[in-house]
Design a protein around this nucleic acid. Sequence first.
DNA 1: TAATGTGTATTATATGATTAATACACATTA
DNA 2: TAATGTGTATTAATCATATAATACACATTA
Lengths: 129, 129
Amino acid sequence: MNIKLNSREPVYIQVIRYFKEQIAKGVFEPGQEISSRRELANKLKINPNTAQRAYKEMEEQGLIFTEGNLPSRITKNEMIIKQVREELILEAVSTFIVAVQSINVPLEEAINLVKKKYEENPNEQEGNR
Amino acid sequence: MNIKLNSREPVYIQVIRYFKEQIAKGVFEPGQEISSRRELANKLKINPNTAQRAYKEMEEQGLIFTEGNLPSRITKNEMIIKQVREELILEAVSTFIVAVQSINVPLEEAINLVKKKYEENPNEQEGNR
DNA sequence: TAATGTGTATTATATGATTAATACACATTA
DNA sequence: TAATGTGTATTAATCATATAATACACATTA
């Protein structure tokens, strides 16, 4: 559990993104049991309702599921998992392109900067080999 | 004046970013007179106080300056303008790298996606040739 | 001179989103 | 049976932001 919460963005949104990233990376595996609302709230020092809100939205999006009053689990639907991954990638790519175009930086130059910057501080978060 | 305001982010922040982009692109030239607070508020259908807040911050950052009670102007300090441009580029690059790393997408793959996506919808906003 | 248009400042209010505080039903288990 | 841990739901409180309502000094201009 390695989330850094910022105050600029709603906490439940940040929680959802974190889960999406873990799912996309495969750190959270299909069918895997996840922390209960209260447990997550404790870990992150947030209100249980905020955790609940995040979980509720994730459930609506099919990312997790809940049977009875058992702890929720990561979806077993591989299609959804694939979509999450693609959504995150697409979002990153789109954001980058929009930003670059908005200040008229040529694509090649922007890509070179990415490569350079990437080499400067390579892979901070590995952890899954 | 082509700002699309979203409701997720403070309006004055969005206004500041817009000005930064225009300055970085050179659309707003050094010394150029800009809209008055009230005029901007009218154009964007926002409150004059919100415009004032944006301008005040930009003044503190040295992006614009005001002499007496004349309309404010874009800074003539080329160094600052250069810095704004670099700040925006660096921000875009960093955001992209963080996003890509957070889901373990190899850099090469990410860059290829950028190139592909870029070709699909090339330069929407030219306008300054 | 009066009107208008600048920038600037202060105080109060409204709004919407977020978070907090509780409560309830249910199931498991000690 | 009582306690604990689930998910779920409702209502209240908090908070940052935006807006509203004014006011003032100054300069230009009709």
